[in-house]
Design a protein around this nucleic acid. Structure first.
Lengths: 233, 233
DNA sequence: AAGAGTATGATTGTATACGATATCAGGCAA
DNA sequence: TTGCCTGATATCGTATACAATCATACTCTT
């Protein structure tokens, strides 16, 4: 294996290139609270008191409140004025629905991305796919999951549409971090890789029809892998 | 016309029943700034200084910052840490894209809504439609637009899906308030009514296929009415 | 004169103080 | 005992104060 390949590895796994958000107190708080909610560490219906979070994270109320704002807009908590913030529970129906919504946007995303992607971005996508292949063969689930995220994120970026990027990124976080389907993917590494290959080949051929089909399959299979029958809507 | 009908009018036009958000300083600021941006009163690329907004609205920085948070998550401004908030401009491409995204979600929404709507909600939807008919005949564009919003909002609520509700509500605000298509609707009151009738009838018959078709037509026509050719994607 | 370095002012990030509102417990009356 | 009223406490909403960061302009050096 040539040396240059290892350099690529380093570059590609440094996802600071993709996540151009500079970390800040409210952002960190938001991320942490979001993950805690999705993973069930904070129960549905529980009241989030500002001061409790302040003590827990050793910060003042201002950044806490800003994190709460973000959580509310992402639908994870309800803020009732003068009452407090309450954790919204995701039912199985909600998660099942989410796969349907994600499928609708993701198919649009691949269509637009194929039309709007630059040659440079296409090369990056190829690198990302190659790395997924590499990590799948190695059986490195963690790195594989990371590249999975990057791969999809690159497609989202290529759509040139901020809303699509934001919503799909949220869905990605949801479907990945929810306690319900946590850890399921490791049993299906090869299967997932094959689905990504289909998507990537469609990109390489700039075949929108094939990309849509492959994406639909990918999401539907993902839904089933997470334990949701397709029939449930 | 029986007296009861006027009572219904009053109830239905009181959209506080639908918008269960209690007004607050940050929320009001958010709404006002959002509309100003969408209507072009605040130019794209312009920097929003917290203190300037404070003086303009006679409030302190805290609610201003919270409004900024919301604007950022809706994609209307970019907040660069320690630098400031910058207005993001919507290109024609962005707005054209938005119609496509809205179509995708709105068709899902009517499917789910038909499946999940209660009899009571169905009755309310009928009242809303009847009022649209009434105001169209009267030629009252303002009231008609308001009922238009309510009608769609009721469908969103019937989906029982928070994310769908939030995203579609945003799109509704965008496509209604953007300076580009401001005021176009008054020329097409009857046309719009006919489209809503098709949607409503599909609901009454609980015919998902027909509802999807009618919704697609409604959005596509709306896009054309706003001056966007369907071919542009 | 051009560029780097620094100092100053402006703006944002965070913390805290104060006032408003809601919750809850206890007492009083029916 | 039950219901309502009232006050105390807690929590939230807003304002302000202080700290950190950034932008700008000026000076000094080459």
């Amino acid at each position: 294996m040539p040396t240059i390949f290892f350099e690529v590895l380093i570059v590609m796994t440094d996802n600071s290139l993709l996540q151009n958000k500079i970390s800040s107190l409210p952002q960190d708080l938001f991320n942490r609270l979001r993950d805690d909610i999705l993973q069930g560490k904070i129960a549905a219906g529980e009241k989030l008191t500002e001061q409790k979070i302040c003590k827990e994270y050793q910060v003042s109320r201002t950044p806490v409140r800003e994190a709460f704002q973000k959580l509310e807009l992402d639908g994870l908590i309800d803020i009732i004025p003068n009452r407090g913030a309450f954790v919204v529970g995701l039912t199985k129906q909600d998660i099942s629905d989410m796969y349907e919504l994600r499928k609708a946007y993701e198919t649009i995303a691949v269509k637009w991305a194929i039309k709007r992607i630059t040659d440079e971005e296409m090369a990056q996508l190829e690198e990302a796919y190659d790395l997924m292949e590499f990590y799948t063969m190695k059986g490195d689930t963690t790195k594989m999951l990371q590249m999975n995220t990057n791969f999809h994120q690159m497609i989202y970026n290529a759509t040139r549409n901020r809303m699509l990027q934001h919503v799909l990124t949220s869905y990605q976080v949801y479907t990945k971090n929810t306690k319900i389907n946590e850890g399921y993917i490791m049993d299906y590494l090869e299967e997932v890789l094959a689905e990504h290959k289909a998507i990537f080949m469609a990109f390489k051929n700039r075949d929108m029809e094939a990309a849509v089909k492959a994406t639909e399959t990918h999401i539907e299979n993902g839904k089933q892998r997470a334990g949701f029958p397709l029939s449930l809507e």
